[in-house]
Design a protein around this nucleic acid. Structure first.
Lengths: 128, 128
DNA sequence: GTTATAATTCAATGTGGGTTGAAGTATAAA
DNA sequence: TTTATACTTCAACCCACATTGAATTATAAC
């Protein structure tokens, strides 16, 4: 079975954030949040050509953030939806990486003749 | 005074995520989380040339995510730290945008002769 | 003054990836 | 079979931007 909670490396997180760091993909995701469906409807709602929608949806699918399903009555229609567990995992990884409680008191190890072993909450401005 | 909680548009969020969607910048932020300091130390820890560190730090500073301060004893040294309120606001915007509870039941408005007004939690596969 | 150090800025390069228009695939309707 | 529809794929273009090396600024030490 796959890793339950894989280690969050900067490279890993950056790769996932790259998928999100696009205004049109965010608009698509934002629309899928409201329960929108097929390629055509997304394109109409966002004023984008169908092939662009396809392209961005593929990126989102490759990232595992979006699922696709064919209409059982008319297989020409594709219905897209958000992969909730995947999105939830990503949000959790994001929150964990940027958890402010991780921030440590600073302990300068460079700079001029600097007092060592005396971390302060704020910047350690060397006292006289 | 500025907006307390500006509207989170996809364009807005994408612009901020672009700053984060880089492995080296995430490594820098990750290092700043542990209280690291000057340009030189970051470069040494990450194995990157000083000018690249400068470049990425400027991007992070322009985004308001990182603060800089000069050493009062030796003004050649710059100390970098995370702008906690800014990072916290970004995390909050991220979480709000991708809040899974926003996801609505789907109500297909396209596709073949589809029953209207009957949203389902999962995909609405048209029944016979 | 000169030399050394920390960091930034500049110019040039290279590339990943978003965008576009056309062609292609698959299914359904006529 | 032919035509229409929904979507995808392909090839080409374009540009923001990360990377690199050298030059520049600013400060401190000698």
């Amino acid at each position: 079975m796959p890793d339950q909670s894989p280690v969050i490396t900067p490279e890993n997180l950056a790769r996932q954030l790259k998928v999100l760091a696009d205004p049109r993909r965010l608009r698509i995701l934002n629309l899928l949040m409201t329960g929108v469906q097929c390629n055509c409807e997304i394109g109409e709602a966002l004023g984008m050509p169908a092939n662009l929608i396809s392209h961005h949806l593929r990126v989102l699918r490759n990232a595992g953030l979006v699922q696709a399903e064919r209409d059982p009555l008319d297989a020409r229609w594709m219905y897209y939806s958000i992969n909730e567990p995947a999105l939830e995992a990503l949000v959790r990884a994001f929150d964990a990486f940027f958890d402010l409680s991780r921030i440590q008191p600073r302990h300068p190890s460079c700079g001029p003749k600097r007092l060592q072993g005396k971390p302060t909450k704020k910047l350690l401005v060397s006292a006289p």
